[in-house]
């Protein structure tokens, strides 16, 4: 299930806690996924069509799912711009196929 996935090691903030958890953020040609860093189990997968918008900063990366999910998904990473460009590239490919 992880064939063709680009992985980024990021840190997730646990809800209600001040603890950061290592996590793998996977990007494929048509989805973004949360993957367990140790077991490589896919915890959650979002098709790119459910991502309303995203934002990269030097220290973070955030996904906004609009109507599909109430809260943002935000992680700490210094690779936000790379994740952003990879997603943008895959979306460009999807758009060109139409």
């Amino acid at each position: 299930r992880t064939y063709g996935v680009s992985f980024f090691l990021v840190k997730e903030k646990m809800k209600g806690k001040n603890k950061l958890v290592p996590r793998l953020l996977g990007v494929t040609k048509d989805s973004v996924m949360r993957v367990d860093e140790k077991t490589k189990e896919v915890l959650q997968e979002w098709p790119l069509t459910t991502v309303k918008r995203w934002a990269a900063s030097p220290k973070s990366f955030t996904l906004d799912f609009g109507e599909y999910q109430e809260s943002y998904y935000s992680v700490q990473t210094t690779e936000g711009e790379q994740i952003s460009q990879l997603i943008a590239g895959y979306i460009d490919i999807i758009l060109k196929k139409k």
Binding site: W54, A56, G66, S84
Partner: peptide, 16 residues
């Protein structure tokens, strides 16, 4: 990035 607007850091997804 082609065909995409950047406003306050957010990139809008055209296939959403």
């Amino acid at each position: 990035v082609m065909g995409r607007s950047r406003e306050s850091g957010w990139v809008e997804n055209e296939i959403y």
